[in-house]
Design a binder for these strands. Structure first.
Lengths: 242, 242
DNA sequence: TCAGGTACACTAGTATACAAGTTCGCTGCC
DNA sequence: GGCAGCGAACTTGTATACTAGTGTACCTGA
């Protein structure tokens, strides 16, 4: 960080520089920093292993260290950042054992929720979920991948609402965040149309009042990413550990 | 909080005063504050609804606001503390809908883990789990309830280890922490011997190679507390909301 | 006596200053 | 040329100072 010459300054022009936050004065700064960093990490804009320094982040986005530290503390809980006291912090590498565990968590919870949702399934709930899938198709056609992923979350969340277990969603979301980077790597654009078909198949089974089949389709849907992951480890070796 | 007279000062002699932390200089202060507060909340030493002020806590345990704030932030994530900006913070009341959701999470995960553990069950794993139950019986005989609860955690965690899904435990633990206050209320000393028997029944089924029966016993074991909870709401109305 | 306004004490959020520890490169000696 | 040792610059952890917003008690006036 020697500011000896303009050339040295140029060295700072890495991924962190593209971290631009538009602040809403009514909301807490630390929350907004947390969300911005989390999105940047999950979207791989800040790749695993990236060194992050509290000082550089707060210089970059123009706030003091306090809210930045608060955000990083929360990201450590999310297992998306690792802090080494007095040494430094970095975007956590993707730990294969953690991916296994969190994938297990997500699958176990989503399937359990789906079974509960199927007991309370109604045409209205079905229509709402199908609307989400339709919007996903539109987002995909527009090439708006961020919106596509947001709608994907909505789709999976809708089952929690249907099961009257909305509180379960936050836990699913945390597990999801811990494996989402793998999903992003795995979602070459070619796979996304298949996602739509898989979502539709789950709803078809629910509409037919066949919870076993619905659970089976959801299981299949969630198993795609891990299956693809195996093939990714080689080409993105730097991102993974263990 | 007007310090008008000595009598008013006496008013500060509430549960917070019994918050004594013996610091280990090698570990981070904020971590130790977090653990101390979490334990105090779950053990109901700080009952739901207790007003907590960052300033009073840091005066009480003799550190600055920074690590206390860090600890409270983490407790908010755990849903054990609620913060109202510029107004105050309090130990979160027990929210019935959250208890439902987190009980659902815990049950879904523990049963899924147990099924996986049963596939890899060995006499060594069985012996280790039975050893824990034996220690629990000793702790109960000694009246050491804290140790009893610690061993209870160990028992449930052992299935994650057996299933080679240790990463799942931290998520179970969070859901557990969110319902543990109910368990504490429900565990009149009379119930604890039954816990030992229920633990034994689960191990018996695993040893017989009967995962269905093991899951059934675990389900029964985990369902005791919610069943008892219904009877508690009346007598501890102040602790609950919704 | 009661209503309204003001001042103060308290809250949490943010900024800054200081402390303790690690890394790495330069300098001087061998 | 190579190695030892010192030092500067960086890291995160903690303490303190300041800001902005809230509620309440008290005082003033009718």
């Amino acid at each position: 960080m020697v500011a000896a010459a303009a050339v040295e300054i140029e060295d700072e022009d890495d991924a962190l520089v593209r971290l631009i936050v538009h602040f809403d004065r009514r909301r807490q700064v630390s929350d907004q920093v947390y969300e911005a960093l989390k999105k940047a990490i999950i979207s791989l804009q800040l790749p695993p292993g990236t060194l992050i320094s509290e000082n550089r982040i707060c210089r970059q986005i123009g706030v003091s260290r306090t809210p930045v530290r608060s955000a990083i503390t929360r990201l450590v809980e999310d297992e998306l950042v690792e802090v080494f006291p007095q040494k430094g912090s970095l975007v956590a590498p993707i730990k294969l054992s953690a991916v296994r565990s969190n994938h297990f968590i997500r699958k176990a919870l989503e399937i359990a929720v789906l079974r509960r949702a199927s007991e309370a399934w109604t045409p209205e709930l079905s229509a709402r979920s199908r609307q989400i899938v339709t919007s996903q198709a539109a987002a995909l056609a527009d090439g708006d991948l961020e919106h596509f992923h947001d709608l994907d979350q909505e789709f999976h969340r809708s089952f929690c609402l249907a099961a009257n277990l909305e509180g379960v969603w936050s836990t699913i979301q945390i597990a999801k965040a811990r494996v989402d980077r793998v999903h992003r790597l795995a979602s070459g654009v070619g796979r996304l149309p298949l996602v739509l078909a898989e979502h539709g198949a789950i709803l078809d089974a629910l509409d037919r009042g066949d919870p076993e089949r619905a659970a089976e389709r959801l299981d299949y849907h969630l198993e795609r990413a891990p299956a693809i992951m195996e093939t990714l480890i080689g080409s993105h070796e730097k991102y993974f550990v263990e």
